[in-house]
């Protein structure tokens, strides 16, 4: 464990608390893509089905990510259902899941169910944010709290990049699947980060140019 990874994980943790805070305080899941949240459940379940013990930290985090992502789906689907507008959450997830299944079958470290699911989850995580970003693009604006959620989530994978560089030099290990997918995942946030830093951090509302 190094500081980059620790702060990456903490940022991931923070993003979930920010999202929950947003839903609770506004009593609404407006502006949040149900599809993206559902994809995260698929990501965590397919990745953490590998019960190999690593550490207490690792186990607790895994349980938290599975539990919280399912809880968020419950909030969106049941508790605050009327506040979710499916007509703007229109990204076709089959275009993400299909290719990720294929990529998982082709690129994996061992052709076993657990390993293919692990690869699939890595690929799917890298694109799971797309329905959310697509929704943002469609509406052209976002509540500030929602942009903080996205920034924390983007920072999580961005921090994993220096973590991999650090691990390469200290342990001599590289995980090509995780690194490739991680770079793609971080890349998808670049546009968002640009607007976040130039507008939201300056106290302005998140609005995309028309």
């Amino acid at each position: 464990m190094n500081l980059f990874r620790l702060f990456g994980d903490l940022s991931h943790l923070a993003s979930i608390f920010i999202l929950l805070h947003k839903i609770y305080t506004t009593r609404s899941c407006r502006g949040i893509s149900f599809k993206t949240q559902a994809l995260y459940v698929a990501v965590f379940v397919s990745r953490y089905i590998d019960f190999t013990y690593i550490s207490v930290y690792n186990t607790l985090m895994k349980l938290f990510f599975i539990g919280s992502s399912c809880y968020i789906l419950y909030l969106m689907r049941i508790k605050y259902r009327p506040t979710h507008d499916p007509s703007i959450d229109t990204f076709r997830v089959e275009y993400l899941v299909g290719p990720c299944v294929l990529l998982g079958l082709i690129f994996n470290y061992q052709f076993t169910v657990i390993e293919v699911l692990w690869s699939f989850s890595i690929f799917l995580e890298s694109v799971a944010i797309l329905p959310q970003l697509f929704m943002l693009q469609r509406t052209g604006e976002a509540e500030t709290i929602t942009t903080h959620y996205l920034a924390a989530l983007g920072a999580y994978r961005a921090l994993y990049i220096p973590n991999w560089i650090y691990r390469y030099f200290t342990e001599g290990t590289v995980d090509p699947i995780a690194v490739t997918a991680g770079l793609v995942q971080t890349g998808l946030y670049l546009d968002f980060f640009y607007v976040y830093f130039t507008k939201v951090m300056q106290g302005q509302k998140f609005e995309l140019p028309a």
Binding site: K62, Y160, V174, D175
Partner: peptide
């Protein structure tokens, strides 16, 4: 053991 790579990450 290549299969173990990255598996300690979340």
């Amino acid at each position: 053991d290549t299969a173990a790579k990255g598996k300690d990450e979340l």
